[in-house]
Protein backbone atom coordinates (compact mmCIF):
# COMPACT_ATOMS: atom_id res chain seq x y z
CA UNK A 1 0.00 0.00 0.00
CA UNK A 2 2.81 2.34 0.94
CA UNK A 3 4.61 1.45 -2.25
CA UNK A 4 1.53 2.04 -4.34
CA UNK A 5 1.25 5.55 -2.93
CA UNK A 6 4.92 6.21 -3.63
CA UNK A 7 4.60 4.98 -7.20
CA UNK A 8 1.52 7.05 -7.78
CA UNK A 9 3.14 10.17 -6.41
CA UNK A 10 6.36 9.70 -8.39
CA UNK A 11 4.44 9.15 -11.62
CA UNK A 12 2.22 12.14 -10.93
CA UNK A 13 5.23 14.32 -10.17
CA UNK A 14 6.98 13.34 -13.41
CA UNK A 15 3.83 13.75 -15.49
CA UNK A 16 3.26 17.13 -13.84
CA UNK A 17 6.76 18.32 -14.70
CA UNK A 18 6.40 16.97 -18.26
CA UNK A 19 3.09 18.77 -18.74
CA UNK A 20 4.61 21.97 -17.36
CA UNK A 21 7.60 21.84 -19.68
CA UNK A 22 5.37 21.11 -22.66
CA UNK A 23 2.93 23.89 -21.81
CA UNK A 24 5.86 26.31 -21.70
CA UNK A 25 7.28 25.15 -25.07
CA UNK A 26 3.82 25.21 -26.60
CA UNK A 27 3.22 28.75 -25.38
CA UNK A 28 6.52 29.82 -26.94
CA UNK A 29 6.11 28.11 -30.30
CA UNK A 30 2.37 28.35 -30.90
CA UNK A 31 2.39 31.98 -32.06
CA UNK A 32 5.20 31.28 -34.53
CA UNK A 33 3.36 28.23 -35.88
CA UNK A 34 0.18 30.25 -36.40
CA UNK A 35 2.15 33.05 -38.05
CA UNK A 36 3.91 30.59 -40.34
CA UNK A 37 0.60 29.22 -41.56
CA UNK A 38 -0.76 32.66 -42.40
CA UNK A 39 2.47 33.73 -44.09
CA UNK A 40 2.62 30.51 -46.10
CA UNK A 41 -0.93 31.01 -47.38
CA UNK A 42 -0.22 34.63 -48.23
CA UNK A 43 2.98 33.78 -50.11
CA UNK A 44 1.12 31.16 -52.07
CA UNK A 45 -1.66 33.56 -53.04
CA UNK A 46 0.88 36.27 -53.94
CA UNK A 47 2.61 33.80 -56.22
CA UNK A 48 -0.72 33.13 -57.93
CA UNK A 49 -1.68 36.79 -58.40
CA UNK A 50 1.49 38.92 -58.13
CA UNK A 51 -0.43 42.13 -58.85
CA UNK A 52 -2.60 41.83 -55.74
CA UNK A 53 -1.49 43.30 -52.43
CA UNK A 54 -4.38 42.10 -50.30
CA UNK A 55 -6.51 38.94 -50.32
CA UNK A 56 -10.03 38.60 -48.98
CA UNK A 57 -11.59 35.17 -48.55
CA UNK A 58 -15.17 34.84 -49.79
CA UNK A 59 -17.42 33.67 -46.99
CA UNK A 60 -19.79 31.65 -49.19
CA UNK A 61 -18.36 29.32 -51.83
CA UNK A 62 -20.71 28.14 -54.62
CA UNK A 63 -21.59 24.45 -54.95
CA UNK A 64 -19.78 22.59 -57.70
CA UNK A 65 -21.86 21.44 -60.71
CA UNK A 66 -19.54 18.50 -61.29
CA UNK A 67 -20.05 16.28 -58.26
CA UNK A 68 -16.51 14.90 -58.40
CA UNK A 69 -14.98 18.36 -57.92
CA UNK A 70 -14.91 20.17 -54.59
CA UNK A 71 -14.56 23.94 -54.30
CA UNK A 72 -12.79 24.72 -51.03
CA UNK A 73 -11.92 28.39 -50.84
CA UNK A 74 -12.11 31.45 -53.05
CA UNK A 75 -9.93 34.50 -52.49
CA UNK A 76 -10.45 37.88 -54.11
CA UNK A 77 -7.14 39.62 -54.80
CA UNK A 78 -7.20 43.39 -54.41
CA UNK A 79 -4.78 46.18 -55.14
CA UNK A 80 -5.87 49.26 -53.18
CA UNK A 81 -9.57 48.33 -53.22
CA UNK A 82 -9.70 47.54 -56.97
CA UNK A 83 -10.14 43.86 -57.72
CA UNK A 84 -7.33 42.32 -59.79
CA UNK A 85 -8.49 38.69 -59.87
CA UNK A 86 -9.62 35.64 -57.93
CA UNK A 87 -7.82 32.53 -56.66
CA UNK A 88 -9.74 29.26 -56.36
CA UNK A 89 -8.73 26.29 -54.28
CA UNK A 90 -10.36 23.17 -55.72
CA UNK A 91 -9.78 19.44 -55.47
CA UNK A 92 -10.77 16.31 -57.35
CA UNK A 93 -9.87 12.65 -57.35
CA UNK A 94 -7.12 11.64 -59.79
CA UNK A 95 -5.69 8.18 -60.36
CA UNK A 96 -4.56 7.29 -56.86
CA UNK A 97 -5.06 10.41 -54.75
CA UNK A 98 -7.04 13.59 -54.27
CA UNK A 99 -5.41 16.38 -56.27
CA UNK A 100 -5.57 19.87 -54.75
CA UNK A 101 -4.95 22.81 -57.01
CA UNK A 102 -5.03 26.60 -57.03
CA UNK A 103 -6.43 28.39 -60.07
CA UNK A 104 -5.96 32.14 -60.55
CA UNK A 105 -8.45 34.01 -62.76
CA UNK A 106 -7.91 37.53 -64.03
CA UNK A 107 -10.66 40.18 -63.93
CA UNK A 108 -11.64 39.30 -67.52
CA UNK A 109 -12.16 35.67 -66.32
CA UNK A 110 -9.14 34.25 -68.08
CA UNK A 111 -6.83 31.73 -66.43
CA UNK A 112 -3.70 33.46 -65.17
CA UNK A 113 -1.87 30.67 -63.40
CA UNK A 114 -2.35 27.13 -62.09
CA UNK A 115 -0.49 25.43 -59.28
CA UNK A 116 -0.90 21.87 -57.99
CA UNK A 117 -0.90 22.12 -54.21
CA UNK A 118 -0.74 18.44 -53.33
CA UNK A 119 -1.12 15.07 -55.00
CA UNK A 120 0.11 11.51 -54.62
CA UNK A 121 -0.18 10.24 -58.16
CA UNK A 122 2.09 7.58 -59.64
CA UNK A 123 5.66 8.87 -59.38
CA UNK A 124 7.16 9.57 -62.79
CA UNK A 125 3.81 9.47 -64.61
CA UNK A 126 0.92 11.15 -62.80
CA UNK A 127 3.26 13.41 -60.87
CA UNK A 128 4.20 15.11 -64.16
CA UNK A 129 0.93 17.09 -63.93
CA UNK A 130 2.76 19.44 -61.57
CA UNK A 131 5.18 20.49 -64.34
CA UNK A 132 4.95 23.76 -66.26
CA UNK A 133 4.81 21.96 -69.63
CA UNK A 134 1.41 20.58 -68.81
CA UNK A 135 -0.05 23.40 -66.72
CA UNK A 136 0.94 26.29 -69.01
CA UNK A 137 -1.46 25.01 -71.70
CA UNK A 138 -4.36 26.30 -69.63
CA UNK A 139 -3.17 29.92 -69.43
CA UNK A 140 -5.47 32.32 -71.23
CA UNK A 141 -8.37 29.85 -71.55
CA UNK A 142 -11.76 31.20 -70.53
CA UNK A 143 -14.49 28.74 -71.60
CA UNK A 144 -15.33 25.51 -69.75
CA UNK A 145 -15.01 23.32 -72.87
CA UNK A 146 -11.56 21.92 -72.16
CA UNK A 147 -11.05 18.30 -73.03
CA UNK A 148 -8.10 15.98 -72.94
CA UNK A 149 -6.65 15.16 -76.41
CA UNK A 150 -8.91 17.80 -78.01
CA UNK A 151 -7.62 21.13 -76.82
CA UNK A 152 -5.40 19.93 -73.97
CA UNK A 153 -2.44 17.57 -74.40
CA UNK A 154 -2.43 15.10 -71.51
CA UNK A 155 0.74 13.96 -69.75
CA UNK A 156 1.74 10.81 -71.59
CA UNK A 157 0.90 7.69 -69.59
CA UNK A 158 -1.28 9.65 -67.18
CA UNK A 159 -4.56 10.42 -68.91
CA UNK A 160 -6.61 9.92 -65.74
CA UNK A 161 -4.51 12.34 -63.72
CA UNK A 162 -4.57 14.86 -66.57
CA UNK A 163 -8.35 14.57 -67.01
CA UNK A 164 -8.82 15.18 -63.31
CA UNK A 165 -6.98 18.49 -63.56
CA UNK A 166 -9.01 19.42 -66.67
CA UNK A 167 -12.25 18.57 -64.83
CA UNK A 168 -11.34 20.80 -61.91
CA UNK A 169 -10.40 23.69 -64.18
CA UNK A 170 -13.60 23.39 -66.23
CA UNK A 171 -15.51 23.62 -62.98
CA UNK A 172 -13.74 26.87 -62.05
CA UNK A 173 -14.39 28.34 -65.49
CA UNK A 174 -18.06 27.40 -65.26
CA UNK A 175 -18.39 29.77 -62.30
CA UNK A 176 -16.73 32.70 -64.00
CA UNK A 177 -19.89 34.77 -63.71
CA UNK A 178 -19.09 35.19 -60.06
Amino acid sequence: MKNLLRYGLTLMLICGIAAGVLAFTYERTQKIIALNKIREKENLLKEMLPKATKFVMLSNTPKANDSSVKIHEIYVGKNIESIVGTVWEVSTYGYSSEIFLLVALSTDKKIEKIKILSQQETPGLGTEITKRDFLDQFIGKNTPNLEVNKNIMPVSGATISSSAVVRAINEVLRHNGL
Binding site: Y93, G94, Y95, S96, T122, I160
Partner: peptide, 9 residues
Protein backbone atom coordinates in the same frame (compact mmCIF):
# COMPACT_ATOMS: atom_id res chain seq x y z
CA UNK B 1 2.01 -3.72 -53.80
CA UNK B 2 2.78 -0.62 -55.91
CA UNK B 3 0.58 -2.30 -58.50
CA UNK B 4 -2.46 -1.79 -56.28
CA UNK B 5 -2.21 1.99 -56.74
CA UNK B 6 -5.29 3.27 -58.47
CA UNK B 7 -7.33 0.25 -57.50
CA UNK B 8 -9.90 2.32 -55.64
CA UNK B 9 -10.83 4.39 -58.65
Amino acid sequence: FLGFQGLAH
